[in-house]
């Protein structure tokens, strides 16, 4: 209880919590589409690219977000094309790009960073890295993501489900996919501060998979993913304060426990 009052009396922590809730919600919604379209690796690849871009911009004394956001958005666009073209196997192409950027990031951090960048906190995240800038980007981002999902819900459903059918009946599937990839890029860049490079993809993947254990309708999955994601974030945040653990890892562990619970509930429901 003492912990709670302490947490919620600090305006910085409150702001970080707000960013976390919004990012978790957006990641969960976008994650449902990415997981179902077999693009979940894109989230992982983007986080590595974001790390590389961040380190390099620190080493060169550039504004970190102003460099990282456009770089990651362009990468998202390219990765989407790669996954669709089928010329190079999409997942191996993503792995190549991801490990190269990670390596470049680590190299840049040790060459030019000179102690300015704490690689550890970027790898595994820290909620204290969230600043005013993140908050200012996060709020409109969340509004856009929610607006897209509410206003274009049925189109998103159809494009995620069956792209060929959607296109044959006149839906602009490519535009929706690009939009989802670009929004994912933004979510990854912001969420990376909290979750870290290595753990951010779980924010995208876990809620969707958790929801799919129990819910069998698209609407159910979307709503449930949003709720479990925010719940896991808050639970993980509390655990991290109480046990003095890194935020990212506590959130992922909370996600994993919720997944296990839903998995068992799903099994029981199936039997009955």
């Amino acid at each position: 209880m003492e912990l709670l009052t302490l947490v919620f009396s600090d305006s910085h922590i409150l702001r970080c919590t707000a960013v976390g809730i919004l990012v978790s919600l957006c990641a969960a919604l976008l994650g449902v589409c990415l997981v179902l379209k077999r693009y979940s690796m894109i989230g992982d690849g983007l986080s590595h690219v974001a790390f590389g871009a961040l380190s390099i911009s620190f080493a060169l004394n550039l504004a970190p977000l102003a460099v990282t956001i456009p770089v990651v958005m362009i990468t998202a666009f390219v990765l989407l094309r790669l996954s669709d073209s089928g010329k190079i196997k999409g997942d191996s192409a993503i792995a190549l790009i991801a490990s190269t950027s990670l390596a470049a990031g680590v190299a840049a951090a040790s060459l030019g960073g000179g102690g300015q960048i704490d690689v550890n906190s970027y790898m595994f995240g820290s909620i204290l890295l969230v600043g005013k800038e993140e908050f200012l980007i996060c709020l409109p981002l969340a509004i856009v993501v929610l607006a897209v999902f509410v206003l274009c819900y049925h189109d998103i459903f159809l494009v995620t489900y069956d792209e060929d059918f959607a296109r044959a009946s006149g839906t602009n599937a490519a535009a929706y996919k690009t939009l989802i990839a670009l929004l994912t890029a933004l979510v990854v860049v912001i969420g990376m501060r909290i979750m870290g490079t290595l753990l951010i993809s779980s924010l995208v993947i876990f809620p969707a998979l958790t929801a799919m254990r129990v819910f069998k309708s698209f609407r159910g999955v979307i709503i449930c993913a949003g709720f479990t994601s925010v719940f896991a974030f808050l639970l993980g945040l509390l655990i991290s304060f109480a046990a003095e653990l890194p935020t990212g890892s506590s959130i992922v562990l909370a996600d994993a426990v919720i997944f296990a619970l839903f998995f068992m509930v799903g099994k029981v429901l199936k039997r009955s």
């Binding site: 459903f157 069998k216 309708s217 698209f218």
Partner: peptide
């Protein structure tokens, strides 16, 4: 894919 018959 998680979708009901009616949704589809």
């Amino acid at each position: 894919f998680p979708a009901t018959v009616a949704e589809t």
